[in-house]
Computed example of a mutant assay.
Amino acid sequence: MNFEIVTELSHLERVCQQARNVPVVMLDTEFVRTRTLYPRLGLIQMFDGETLSLIDPIELDDLSPLWAVLSDESVIKVLHACSEDLEVFHHYAGVMPTPMIDTQIMAAFLGHGLSTGFAALVDEYLGVTLDKGEARTDWCARPLSDKQLEYAAADVHYLLPLYEILAERVEQTGWGEAVKQECVLMMSKRGKTPDPDKAYLDIKNAWQLRPKQLAVLQKLASWRLKEAQRRDLALNFVVKELNLWKVARFDIRSLEKMADEDFDRFELERHGKRLIAMALEADNTPETHYPEPIARLVDMPGYKQTVKNIKDQTNAVAEQLGVVPEFVGSKKQIHQMLKWAWINECNPEKMPDLLSGWRKPYLEDKVLPLLRK
């Protein structure tokens, strides 16, 4: 397995121009994510069928030639289980690989589980056993060992023949267009930028708070997200989620009370006074500006039976199509549809996954009658 390590801009320009002259390129990324909000990019692998490039973002300050490959709509970008890769591209490049095909999604249409790994598919379809011993390596450390480089190169070297086999089988089964739709759906979800004003909705047990308390939580959660983005620090390393909730729920307005509630010492020293000031400011929010109470689907009449009925329908469709039930309708997607029907009044501009794309003809007539309260 031959590969080139790309550390110079001129070299990157050459391999990227070559990649833009072929119909399909294989892509993968290696990154580290421990205390940071965003993944720290350590390596990018690209294989155009002839040249396998290991692109070093630690050495390269300018990756614009690679981002041009991502944006080139004449070149299909193939990845495997790429949800986190998409997050990397969205953060570093501000673009998504378009068009994109995910071989894990292709495999799902052929009956494999939603989380089927690359190594398992390579073993099944290519008869090759991959060494996954370097999966947890520090990809931002330098130098990378020969074993690490071989591991990284294998991820795109074997992706090409795997993609070719899966693509042929997908076309034979008539799922080609559906694969494209599912990949576009994934990119649309991964390409969203979080709204600080809605960050409080992701706080566990926020539903327990009254509107006045939600106004406090909204302000604190918005600040925490912005602070995490500014410092590139994981949210809970700014301030723990539970502690934001405690400030709102128990009307904590002093450092002493924070200490009593087991706030971390570093949180108190760095952010305690700021949290109190923001909470006091939020206390003066006019009632007309309070957030709406958070409605929970599980508290609504008929929730359990409706979920069961919808699940029965998605299971039947999955059996008919020969795919795993979660691929037709996951728990999250069923909840998305119930929220659309019961809370958002069937907004036609925000159609749920189960009533859109390839799923629509299989499910629309079966599940719409079940959504009536």
Rank of each mutant, 00 (worst) to 15 (best):
E281W: 02
L54G: 07
H91K: 13
D353G: 04
V24P: 10
E150P: 03
S115D: 10
L63N: 06
C16M: 14
L126R: 04
A153H: 03
Q320N: 12
V69I: 08
V184S: 12
L149T: 03
M351H: 00
P196Q: 07
T314C: 10
P293Q: 05
D365E: 14
Y151F: 00
V24L: 12
R230F: 07
N2H: 13
N21K: 15
I334N: 09
T306H: 05
V184L: 15
Q104A: 12
G42Q: 03
M96G: 06
N205A: 11
F118R: 01
D155G: 04
F109M: 05
K226F: 02
A135M: 08
R253K: 12
L43C: 05
D251K: 14
A119I: 00
H271P: 04
E269P: 02
K360S: 11
K189S: 10
A316N: 10
T137N: 14
I294L: 13
L9V: 09
Q305C: 04
E287L: 03
R35F: 05
A248D: 06
L37K: 05
E345V: 04
K332D: 12
A277L: 09
F266T: 15
P23S: 12
V179W: 00
V6H: 08
K304C: 04
T288K: 12
D62R: 15
I310K: 13
L321P: 09
L321T: 06
V128L: 07
P369Q: 08
Q320R: 15
V170T: 12
H157R: 14
T306K: 15
L66C: 05
L235G: 11
S356Q: 11
L126M: 09
K350Q: 11
L370C: 10
L86N: 08
V324C: 13
V156G: 13
H271S: 11
D195N: 13
S10F: 01
L368V: 11
L214M: 06
L166R: 08
P194A: 07
E50H: 15
W207A: 13
R230H: 11
M186R: 10
K204H: 07
K189M: 08
L54R: 03
R230W: 01
W67L: 06
Q17N: 15
T98M: 14
T137S: 15
K366P: 00
R20Q: 15
C140I: 14
L37S: 07
M337R: 00
Q320F: 06
K147Q: 13
F89Y: 12
V25T: 13
V69T: 15
E287I: 04
A108M: 09
L185E: 13
L217Q: 08
D365W: 02
R296P: 04
N347V: 02
M46S: 07
R231H: 08
A93I: 05
G111P: 07
L9H: 13
L217V: 06
P143V: 04
L110F: 05
N344S: 11
M96K: 05
L321G: 09
R40N: 13
L255F: 01
A154Y: 01
L217N: 09
R169G: 04
A206K: 05
V307L: 13
E171W: 00
R372S: 14
V78D: 10
L370Y: 02
E182C: 09
Y362N: 09
